[in-house]
Design a protein around this nucleic acid. Structure first.
Lengths: 215, 215
DNA sequence: AATGTCCTTAGGGTTTTCCCTAAAATTTGT
DNA sequence: ACAAATTTTAGGGAAAACCCTAAGGACATT
């Protein structure tokens, strides 16, 4: 019997996954966790074979951190990342953190069961669409147009500059606030334009808002 | 018996929602749709009381469009928006399109059932966290000196220029499109900045989007 | 017709943004 | 520990945005 823990703060997901698994004879959902804390707590008290981990749990950084923690602390417990994001760079980051499988949340029952079986038998599992995404991830095109709807990964400085542009600050004002030269700010501004694939700040703000990266 | 259609391209969600509803005596899930097309098709063939609509189905614009279509075409069919996004402006947009309820995907069974019952009885339903989000979404125009959050009245030309700025066009490009001199466009741009009470295009786009004057 | 208001069009000049190149500083992979 | 990739810092120059003033034209009201 493969003991599965579901880690997701979205109730509907937990229910859905459990429903998909319920028919299986050799897999049982023994734990459901809605917070990072409870995952850590349950793992210290119970033996779990496979963890289905929502990678935005509650945010992407937390999810990645938890994944890393689990892999390091309980090497025999396999992590399958479950997420809505079909972003190539995120998949790579997750795998780098030690996840053995990666599923999109629109996965089928068959895939889900196959993934759990696979990782429990020391294999990796990636479904068709994931492989496709990784194949289409040409490193050269990733910077400029990383696909519509894919949030570019921003450096800390870039994030700071972006939020300040959205506040209506000028390059000079930002330079003063961040104790750097105006030229440095200008570079970050250019990087933002390039990463978002837009020609000016007007579209930068618009797309960043649509991607919910500022509000 | 309240007939419910679930519209979501994420299998896990559909399963989860169905599982949450399954216990109920007066609600039944009669249709499950994974594409916008199938929703439109099923609605033309069956009578549905409540639609649980994933607002990013498959992208936010599609979801909003579908919501609008349903409300217009089948006024007696109530739409409950289901989404992961807890963004105030999105909630407002969805409600404006005619959705009668709004739930986050980490909702509970109780809330889900209450929401379905409520909208079926011609009421609206928003849970605690949604109300909280809307409450915290006070008019953010405090930083600007002129406007007090009211939409400024724009002349026809100003509207044309605003939408084109939001498309990332430059003054020269707009001048060519509108068959006027670049200086004319510049004046309209300045008028927009003044009317919105903002210092540059970045904030102009941001506030105009928040005021739903561009999309 | 006269008056006032608002929209539209412009000229000239300053500030800011944008683009090209490039080198330290930092992180990452082996 | 070293090499490779990424992030941060800059310089100079072209383009666009921004600010000031000002004048011609459409429209309603008296």
């Amino acid at each position: 019997m493969i003991r599965v823990l579901i880690a997701d703060d979205h109730n509907v997901f937990v229910e859905g996954i459990e429903s998909l698994i319920s028919g299986s004879l050799d897999i049982e959902v023994t734990e459901r966790c809605y917070t990072v804390q409870s995952v850590i707590e349950r793992l210290s008290q119970t033996t779990i074979d496979v963890i289905l981990l929502d990678i935005s749990f509650p945010c992407i950084e937390d999810g990645l951190g938890l994944c890393e923690y689990i892999v390091r602390t309980y090497p025999e417990t396999k992590v399958v990342a479950l997420t809505m994001h079909n972003d190539a760079s995120l998949i790579k980051r997750v795998v780098k953190k030690g996840a053995k499988g990666y599923l999109l949340k629109n996965t089928t029952k068959t895939e889900l069961l196959q993934a759990i079986q696979a990782v429990h038998h020391e294999k990796q599992y990636f479904n068709e669409s994931i492989t496709q995404i990784l194949l289409n991830d040409n490193p050269k095109t990733r910077r400029s147009t990383a696909g519509i709807g894919a949030k570019p990964h921003l450096s800390p400085r870039e994030s700071e500059v972006l939020t300040r542009i959205a506040q209506g600050l000028t390059t000079q004002q930002m330079a003063t606030q961040l104790f750097v030269s105006a030229k440095a700010i200008e570079f970050h501004r250019s990087s933002l334009l390039m990463k978002f694939g837009v020609p000016n700040t007007a579209l930068l703000i618009k797309t960043a808002m649509e991607m919910q990266m500022i509000d």
